[in-house]
């Protein structure tokens, strides 16, 4: 489940993770439960989104970066 496509935009799964963060979820565990995605996919996806500067690691969880927030609207 790559979350970023070669053109740098989030894939469908990436968008799902960004929306989960937008809804206020923060931890990979909560996002996995909410989205129904396996935990390993959520963890690897969030890491990839962080690499693309769309999300920021914060403590034990993640939050949208200004760039991610702008993208998801």
């Amino acid at each position: 489940m790559a979350c970023i496509s070669p053109d740098g935009k989030p894939t469908e799964s990436g968008t799902k993770l960004l929306r989960a963060l937008k809804s206020g979820l923060s931890s990979a565990e909560d996002i996995a439960q909410d989205t129904g995605l396996p935990l390993f996919r959520v963890r690897s996806g969030l890491r990839e989104l962080a690499g693309a500067e769309l999300v920021i690691e914060k403590g034990e969880g993640y939050e949208l970066s200004p760039k991610g927030n702008e993208l998801i609207g």
Binding site: M1, A2, C3, P38, L39, F40, R41, R43, S44, G45, R47, E48
Partner: peptide
């Protein structure tokens, strides 16, 4: 095939 994965991603499973 599902992106870059670490063994740590499976912690807890």
């Amino acid at each position: 095939t599902h992106g870059t994965i670490k063994l740590d991603d499976y912690k807890g499973s």
